[in-house]
Amino acid sequence: MKHTAIDIASALKPEFASEEYKQRRQRAAALMLSQGIDALLLNSEANNRYFTGHTSGRWLSRTRPIFLIITKEGAATILCSTKSEADTALMTTAGGCEIKVFGGTGHDIKPGIKGVVDELTALGLDRGRVAAELGVHHRPQLSAMAFESIREALPQLKLVDGSGLLWRARATKSVGEIDYIRTAIGVTDRMYDKVPEWLGAAESERAAFTRVGLDVLTFGAEAFGYRSVNDVTQPPGAGYTDRPIRKNSVIYIDSTCSVAGYWADFARIFAVGAPTSELEDTYKRLWDITGEEINAVRPGATINEVYSVARRATERLTGTTPTLGRVGHSIGLEIVEPPSLCEEEQWVLEPGMVFCIEPSLNSPSGSTLIAEEMVVVTETGFELLTKRATERLLRI
């Protein structure tokens, strides 16, 4: 059933112009044609939002799935379970999408599966090659068994993984996307600027963890995501505990927040009192490594080349042969997006790609320090998006 517009006085507004969403779908369509794919079947919030602008609280519900089908011609159809969800889709999309309701009770995904099967059949795709979010870094609403149900209902359908295509389509950000990322970074910078005023008086890591989240919301974030507040003597990314924040301790804070769905993710390190000379030295070496990695970012460079710069800098500044995992990652509508900055990745950097530069370094006594800044690849090199961390460990 095709859904028609309704008269709502205070409608939500799309985050980008209709032409930008059309260009995104055309970019995906070109990739489909090059890979022999007839359509995309999408069932995740980020991809739906990226290609149509559709936002909804229904993504939290596993029994009221939302689907987006994009054909190799660039035509888009949103499938919703209820009329109210279709109304939301009308308000948040910028046009160019057909919106249909498949119905259902809200406690069973079977109507949604039937809706997808019927729409694929109506589009002549029941014998086609359709790519879905089946691979790396994708977590659709549907379970693996639900996708098997689609295969069983359409035995001639070739349902393949579309992860590589989707990440290629989303890798380079538009000016508007980067502006939202800049805004999220500005919110996070404001939060970090306030930390020296209260961290020394915080009762515990838990209290600091809560304050970080409240501050980014107060300063204008749409949402907060991953956060970590912990003493650097503890495992990195441990989140928080009820440990008191002790005098002369060094505290690592990693915070994320989003604006219009686009994320900022960077970390800062604070000394509450006087840190050891060992930690001060480790921090300065890490600051230098971070700078060298940032300066390696340029269009035409490969991910492996950027990684290798960070590795060589670590070897030279520490006199050791480090064991490095990734030293950063891409970011956008999701906090961690491919490609990761790692040794095996050969992806070529292009203008508009946004990265979190994230090397780490262990002190001689075993404390782990992690630096993180954000950059965008430009036509001539890079632009540092974050306000660079202080060169020396900040004492408060």
Rank of each mutant, 00 (worst) to 15 (best):
G291F: 01
A153I: 09
E133G: 03
R151A: 05
G124F: 03
N362D: 15
V309K: 05
E373S: 05
V376T: 15
P339Q: 05
A28E: 05
G106P: 01
E358T: 14
A122H: 00
D242G: 08
K72R: 11
P140Y: 08
C80G: 02
I251H: 06
T55V: 14
L60M: 14
Y192H: 03
T282L: 06
A94M: 04
R62H: 11
P14E: 06
T282P: 07
R298N: 08
P236W: 11
N230G: 10
G53K: 03
V377N: 06
E391K: 14
R27L: 11
E280T: 10
L385H: 07
A207G: 05
V160A: 01
E305F: 03
V348T: 12
G103D: 05
E343S: 11
H54P: 07
A132R: 01
L79T: 02
E372A: 15
I78C: 00
T380S: 13
V136K: 14
T241G: 09
L286N: 03
H329Q: 04
T386E: 08
I78N: 04
A238E: 13
R311T: 05
N43C: 11
G104D: 02
A223M: 03
S255R: 00
F355N: 04
I294V: 13
T318M: 04
A267M: 07
L142Q: 04
G135H: 04
T323M: 12
P65E: 08
D38W: 06
S56Y: 06
E85T: 12
V259F: 02
A30K: 14
L42C: 02
D179V: 10
G332V: 01
T88D: 12
D38L: 01
R316F: 10
G328Y: 01
F16R: 05
T218S: 15
M145Y: 15
D189V: 10
Q141C: 09
I269Y: 08
A144Q: 13
I357E: 07
P155K: 00
A46Q: 12
R285Q: 10
N48P: 08
E73D: 13
V187D: 01
R62E: 11
E278Q: 00
D215C: 06
G124D: 00
K110W: 13
H3V: 15
L40P: 09
L90R: 14
L361I: 04
R49P: 00
T218I: 09
E152H: 11
G53L: 02
I269K: 04
D231Q: 04
